[in-house]
Design a protein around this nucleic acid. Structure first.
Lengths: 219, 219, 219, 219
DNA sequence: TATGAATGAGATTTCATTCAT
DNA sequence: AATGAATGAAATCTCATTCAT
């Protein structure tokens, strides 16, 4: 990377960092571009060289942060990939995410307040930059590795994510109606029940992974 | 009510109605008080006689609308109160609410975008005006009439409400990841599973509901 | 006085009292009629039954307070009327006024900030209500009783009053450039010098008191 | 100075000039920032680039104008610096100031209405911009050059300034209680008397001013 | 007399965005 | 690429005063 490009990247990062600070402390609509640029140490006009407008920088932040969370969680599962069942992998993934948020309430608040399923899906299901993880692939790999078929796996994931995100948001930030620790057993049990209701037949052995052990197949 | 009070109520309603129109079509932050008052046909200063600021009128709208939805739903259950089991009553209540929202997407959007468990709890668990329904009482009546004890009934309601509201929001408004009709069977099944996990022991017979098995009573 | 008139007087006094409180603590332009009436316990419209507008109540307050100060001072001199020389009477009068102000800085601030020679002259040289003192008469009596003529007595009084009021204002309220005690000797000496420069000839015996000893006149 | 800085100075001056016009004709509180900017031909936001608020521009005007007056007066004395006695220099200074005000009643009114010893002292005793004159130095130079010591020279100056400003204000603007010409002889005489009462001992001869009467020196 | 709801012009201030430098 | 002065529409909010009751 040329020196000038490094410089540009630094400016952009400085703006992103500062914007995040203000958005999380003062809120999006009460943060002005003026504040961001003066704290970031660049001129007003410069802001518009890097971002289309205020909404642009917010969305880029959400993408960035959400993707960071998922990458970390995915890595934690990766290690034990082959030892865990599908359910356990998914639970571990969720537990890791919840853990990250409970340790970073500011980020939770920011993402929650600005999250819609649309932006969210975009953030985790599409690669926006080279570093971003492709969560769609992670999930479909997990499904493929599972011994069962799942009915409507997207709906299943959707329900789980919505249940987790909305209940944990309230439990972590406001302890409403109870703290995270009280909530967890009920929540995790509910998730397993939801997975159960979507679990279908045992898979027929797939070609790729068991082309040579067809003998075991019974069906 | 004196003529002047009727007039005041009309002014307030006119402002609420107009504000709701703008908030739902243009969005909260893009709606100005100037627009509201000029459409409502009152002077700018008059707005401030009724509401502290823009946030105040928004919160009052949420209270008002949320409470309206719940009152309607509660009334629909009231009729068959004694014929239905606890589960069926709760499911009917939820179904009625989902139904109302699916018919009034504008309202759903408005309430969802501005809803937090805090405001929500306030709206349905506290009477703000005389007309407001006391949802807490409705729920606790339902619990009392059930033959079973429930473990942590507040957490149960919380999980159900969060699951329903966040999944339906996305399904009704954006058909994401699927339409409401596709979602419903999975969602309703999930709800019943959640209720199941919270159901506890059979209650000791109480006076009202078991006048004919007093013999079992020991006390 | 009829009961209804007493009631009216009470309302007016309550408004005056409250307005004075706010004017002296928040300042004239930052005090709103709303605040005054709500503290005074009357309706907004009622204010306009007693006062033309905000300026009207301020002027009435100034008249009232200024006249009060002068009445008190005049009374303190009255007792020793015949024992003191003109100079001493005037000095005692001034000293008493300064004393009152140094004990009531709030009032000093209010009157000073809103004082102009015009309003001031009006306040002390014209009777506004029956209780108000006629300062013009007090001063002219003092002059008549003095054994000397005075050149331009009005200019003399004017210079003294302006010197006293502007220097004491600053000394009492801000100790600028020095406190009142440090200022006093220089100030009082300056006043005596000013009186000196206006003192004229010994008076010819006046008609009333010495109609029969005209022979003494030399002129 | 860069072209852009010249432009900025012009904008600021245009705002100051326009504000002064309105403040002096309509009064401070009846002048709106809207009026100022529209007359000055700049955008409303531009005002806030140069001044914090309405009070800020007023204070800057007072500083500016007061300092202008004193600079002019000081220059008039400078010429005859060595020919005049301390008293005559001070009288000439005051006379020049009074003269300026009597020719510019609008300015007198503006400064007087908004003057307090605090702002005033600030205006003349502190350099606010590079052009501002340091009146403190002018006065202390005058004192140093005088052959006498003065008791409490600051109190002396204070009394003189207060006496002059408050009496002349009324005389020039309202001819109350008399016109300036009638007042002057009495006023100037009073000032000389005040100076007299503060004059102390002859100074021990300093090197510069009394090289030829060293014989009298005892030390 | 007394009330206080209603007025609505107008005040101050903010801020995303542009554009000449 | 970077700047930051300038914009000016628009936002929120105030408040002296009126007038129907």
């Amino acid at each position: 990377m040329r020196k000038i490009d490094i410089n540009k990247k630094q400016k952009e990062n400085s703006l992103l960092k500062t914007a995040f600070e203000f958005f999380t402390t003062k809120g999006f609509s009460k943060t002005s571009i003026s504040e961001i640029v003066s704290k970031a140490g660049v001129a007003k006009g410069t802001f518009y060289l890097y971002f289309k407008d205020k909404y642009d920088i917010r969305n880029k932040l959400i993408y960035h942060k959400a993707s960071q969370i998922f990458r970390t969680a995915a890595q934690s599962v990766e290690a034990e990939k082959n030892k865990l069942s599908f359910e356990d992998k998914l639970m571990k993934l969720l537990d890791n995410i919840i853990d990250q948020f409970s340790k970073d309430k500011v980020l939770l608040n920011f993402i929650s307040k600005n999250l819609s399923w649309g932006i969210f899906k975009n953030a985790i299901f599409n690669k926006n930059t080279e570093d971003d993880i492709d969560f769609r692939k992670v999930y479909s790999d997990m499904l493929n590795e599972a011994p069962y078929e799942f009915k409507e796996p997207e709906i299943m994931l959707f329900m789980i994510i919505e249940l987790v995100s909305s209940t944990c948001y309230s439990a972590i930030l406001y302890s409403e109606p109870c703290g995270l620790d009280t909530l967890k057993p009920y929540l995790y049990n509910a998730i397993r029940l939801i997975i159960d209701q979507h679990r279908g037949e045992l898979k027929a052995a797939s070609n790729e992974i068991s082309s040579n052990d067809q003998g075991q197949k019974i069906c």
